[in-house]
Design a binder for these strands. Structure first.
Lengths: 281, 281
DNA sequence: ACGCCGTGATACTCCCCAGGTATCGGCCTA
DNA sequence: TAGGCCGATACCTGGGGAGTATCACGGCGT
């Protein structure tokens, strides 16, 4: 009964994410009828209804929601298998390190320098906030720089790299910009500069006055326009915008940068990079 | 590049385990030529050599060993996806609990009684020693009874059920059978009854004088014949053989029985069974 | 030394099924 | 009520997965 083909899983994931057969087929580069057939065959094979085709579009059933999560995990496992096999087959293949754009510039630079000196080649994969975990699980990356308490570290091994405070990023002209330190209370009491809201794991946004953002670049744009207030690790002020200043937020939780890799990774190269990273301390 | 089909993974696993195209094809229920073609296409797709076809059979390359492990994980993820989806689609589908034959009889009985009283149906899957982890990872089981420090609990959540000492199982006529307690030193100093050797995770056996066993039934046979000495958790003496006695081994490590389930399981039914099990304490 | 056996690769043939095009059927909206 | 949107169905085509037959080659027995 485990004779599901990955094609069927990919098709289902596409439909489940788009909730629309036409768009999903488009994304997959196939026509819509084969997709409809593939999904109904999948439902028949599993003996479970995955989608409700109501008038007005498609919704996931409870079983469909389960399969969406599980199918993504399974496809991730396959992608991981491919990547690790190729890595083992050609050891000079560069490892992929995922990191948030703009985070820990100096650390990353140091790390890459050290690895280059060691002769180990590493590709850096810049990703959006919160994507590192997915990239590791999907086999797109072998290592990631992640941040406690923001990132989800479940299923990964980690080594701490460093701990730092956070700063608020403000337009230079803003009254608070003159202060030499702030508290979280100060920050949350700024009605004209609400803090941006990021999507939760399920894709919904928390309530609040701030703008909704889901990518680093969107956020950068909002900050540049002076539309939102940002509290970020001190080292991230390396991505500095003109006309903005960074003010320490003394009672913000400390942020720990860690290097993370999948618990089930057994690659010597990964272990060696982690060792190099830890030696930078 | 993640467009590996599960068929290819199943084929590769079969060949990698059999190290013989003919037998693998047989096991898969296909002819040998398509299998040869599928494997070489897989190698071409990955750009990596997986097998060395020397004269005199087939051996795995380093990359092949990696893919064997990763492919089994990926196939397990798919099987898990199927099982969990079906579970979500028809909630009255019985859960599967994997347990070693003969371990913790009374506990298991209590647990099943309690669950039956709750109206929750559970199938019990009796398995050989050390197989529980694989069954959980392959989606064949939803829960397992496992034993610290013997079983590999990586990747699972667990709840302790109880802790107990161990006993030695001896032929009634054996000199040591008259003692009312033993030590590990006593036990290991019995040349006529060497302790059976189990295979390690990689399938090889540790050195030693004892017989090699890999299944519970083989072991039971050896014990019944009075050929080996056994040190097992006290509760397991429920599978008692005629003409044998159990003597406590006072300094043997304590054995903790736990109920385990995959960390990424989010099934309400699983959680409810764990709650029931813990309430038995 | 020779020929047979065991093993994996190759040549070819076939046919199943994934995928395409055309069209239907239901439902909503204007 | 007509038109549009969307998913399902009907039917056809082609690629590739699977089968049979055969080859290539090394080991080994007599």
């Amino acid at each position: 009964m485990d004779d599901l083909e990955t094609r069927e899983l990919r098709y289902f994931v596409a439909v489940a994410e788009e909730l629309h057969f036409g768009r999903a087929a488009d994304r997959l580069g196939i026509a819509q009828p084969p997709l409809s057939r593939a999904i109904s065959r999948l439902e028949r094979r599993l003996g479970v209804q995955l989608l409700d085709r109501d008038r007005r579009g498609v919704t996931l059933t409870a079983a469909g929601r389960v399969l969406l999560v599980e199918a993504e995990a399974a496809l991730g496992a396959i992608a991981t298998a491919v990547r690790r096999t190729q890595l083992a087959g050609s050891p000079q293949l560069p490892l992929v390190l995922a990191t948030k754009a703009g985070a820990s510039h100096e650390l990353l630079q140091q790390l890459l320098d050290a690895l280059a000196a060691d002769g180990q080649s590493v590709d850096v994969l810049l990703c959006e906030v919160g994507e590192q975990a997915g990239l590791l699980r999907r086999g797109r990356a072998d290592l990631a720089l992640m941040h406690i308490p923001y990132d989800d570290l479940a299923g990964f091994e980690t080594e701490e790299l460093f701990v730092e405070g956070q700063v608020a990023i403000l337009p230079a002209a803003h009254p608070l910009a003159a202060r030499d330190q702030l508290t979280l209370a100060d920050v949350s009491a700024v009605p004209d500069l609400p803090i941006a809201r990021w999507p939760r794991l399920d894709g919904t946004y928390p309530d609040g006055p701030g703008p909704e953002v889901h990518t680093q670049s969107k956020l950068a744009q909002l900050v540049a326009l002076g539309k939102t207030l940002l509290v970020i690790p001190a080292s991230s002020r390396a991505w500095q915008w003109p006309e903005h200043v960074a003010v320490p937020v003394v009672d913000a939780p400390e942020v720990t940068t860690v290097i993370a890799w999948p618990s089930d990774s057994h690659s010597d190269e990964v272990a060696s990079i982690v060792r190099s990273a830890v030696k930078l301390l």
